[in-house]
């Protein structure tokens, strides 16, 4: 579904990503772990071109997103993204947060969009908050809404950029539960996370990024129980 070939990203004189090669298949749940500054978030944000890579290519469903003539907006509609800071639209109700993009971009009728939005909110247990504003919700609730907002566009893949890092500890669980449900339902997911428990339990592949390269890659069992490189061993020793 997504082929990342030799991806490079430089900020000024700094090399953040130094040639990353990954293939993400349909139904994969890939967790990206690594120390801070290793390029995890930059890697994820390159996947939907929020960050413009300086080299390499990203082939999404057969099209190279680095191609200048490509309709990037059309491709982004198929890649949902969830941010660390939620980034809900504060001037809209929860319902409007969910329905604005589908109505504008997929020409969905208001009724259909609202029905779809309510279904999704139901799934995350927030249907009764549809007419509230984001600021009236807790962090965990906001992040669940943000997941719904992305799902409302019926994407083929979901990108999660440290979705629980800005949450109070007691709210992490509710968001991870929603993500687990999503993985169980067969959604293709790429998750940048510090939640090793989630990575171990839910993902089918883990990528360990260090210094802008993939230092190690494998199943959760391989990564967490039989780490090969010294770098990964010392990283895991610190975080587990």
């Amino acid at each position: 579904m997504i082929d990342v070939v030799n991806l490079e990203k430089h900020f000024g004189g700094e090399n953040v990503l130094n040639g990353i090669n990954v293939t993400i298949n349909k139904g994969d749940v890939v967790c990206v772990i690594g120390p801070s500054g290793s390029g995890k978030s930059t890697f994820l944000r390159c996947l939907n071109m929020l960050e413009k890579p300086t080299g390499g290519s990203i082939i999404f469903e057969g099209d190279n997103l680095m191609d200048k003539h490509i309709d990037l907006n059309a491709h982004r509609q198929k890649m949902g993204m969830v941010f660390q800071q939620f980034n809900l639209f504060p001037h809209m109700t929860i319902m409007e947060n969910l329905t604005t993009a589908p109505m504008m971009l997929k020409k969905m009728s208001k009724d259909d969009a609202q029905k779809k939005a309510l279904e999704l909110l139901e799934r995350v247990g927030l249907a009764d908050r549809a007419s509230d504003r984001p600021s009236q919700l807790s962090g965990g609730q906001q992040q669940r809404v943000a997941i719904c907002r992305a799902l409302c566009m019926e994407p083929d893949v979901m990108l999660f950029d440290e979705p629980t890092s800005a949450l109070d500890p007691e709210m992490v669980g509710e968001v991870l539960d929603v993500m687990k449900e999503l993985a169980k339902a067969g959604m293709t997911m790429v998750v940048v996370t510090h939640e090793m428990g989630f990575a171990r339990e839910v993902s089918n592949r883990v990528i360990f990024l260090d210094d802008g390269v993939i230092a190690e890659e494998g199943t959760p069992d391989e990564i967490f129980n039989h780490p090969q490189s010294e770098r990964l061993q010392s990283f895991l020793a610190k975080v587990l």
Binding site: N48, L50, A74, Q77, N87, L105, A150
Partner: peptide
């Protein structure tokens, strides 16, 4: 306006102007 708002809009597939 927080830069994340533009990113959120773009990530949904909206154009810059939208």
């Amino acid at each position: 306006v927080n830069i994340g708002q533009m990113e959120a809009g773009r990530s949904l597939g909206m154009s810059k102007m939208q």
